[in-house]
Design a protein around this nucleic acid. Structure first.
Lengths: 111, 111
DNA sequence: ATTGTTTACATAAGATTCTTATGTATATTA
DNA sequence: TAATATACATAAGAATCTTATGTAAACAAT
């Protein structure tokens, strides 16, 4: 996803959160949105994105509608009700992860 | 490392940072320290830890000294000069990762 | 006495998630 | 007309993890 191993495991959380915000998005749009938000700091690879979308769909977290725009096909993904619940969990786990990492990196000093 | 996929990729950063703080530690000590700091939220598996330590050592980031304590062997790891430099990079990348994830999760609202 | 838990190391098989490479196809810019 | 951007997809291989298993000593409990 980026030049950095830390991004491993966070792709599904990113996808779900963006869909929660935007309602529906197609794959290529997700890659561009992430580049924009992170000022180029994150680069989602197609080889990671499309299998991840298919897997989330197979698990029932996403639904898809194909649409033809300017003679090209776009596949718009959006959260199912189950996916909305799962997004809440994922964001809670991300918060927990961030707090744990902060605690390790910046330990509270004992005076 | 935990029940959560997000932890993938962060183990080496955790190890390097703890060694930067503590000077030297042995494997089992690292697992206990992380449990303590995160109040049990993170659980480093031995099957992940020991290969990670061996790899960091092979790459020249860590050096090791074996010590016999109460008839049991402990392998104390510490940062090499090269490992100290690499730790600075890793922490910078972690900071960047956290900022990127924050930007995605909590987008700045446009008024 | 011996069973279970903790301390302390290690590795192998398999799962998951990613990168890199490749493929198809259309639209737009140089 | 060649390159770039848009838009999808998959396969091979790399990296990192979990689970399972193994050795071995110390200590607590029954």
């Amino acid at each position: 996803m980026s030049n950095n191993q830390l991004y491993r495991g966070s792709l599904t959380t990113i996808i779900m959160r963006l869909l929660e915000q935007e309602g529906k998005m197609y794959g290529y749009e997700i890659t561009q949105k992430v580049k924009e938000i992170t000022s180029g700091g994150m680069d989602i690879k197609e080889g990671a994105l499309y299998p991840a979308l298919h897997k989330l769909q197979a698990e029932g977290h996403l639904k898809v509608e194909a649409e033809k725009v300017e003679n090209r096909i776009r596949k718009y993904y959006s959260l199912t009700p189950q996916g909305q619940k799962e997004t809440v969990n994922m964001l809670a786990e991300l918060k927990e992860y961030m707090e744990n990492m902060q605690a390790i990196i910046n330990p509270k000093l004992a005076y």
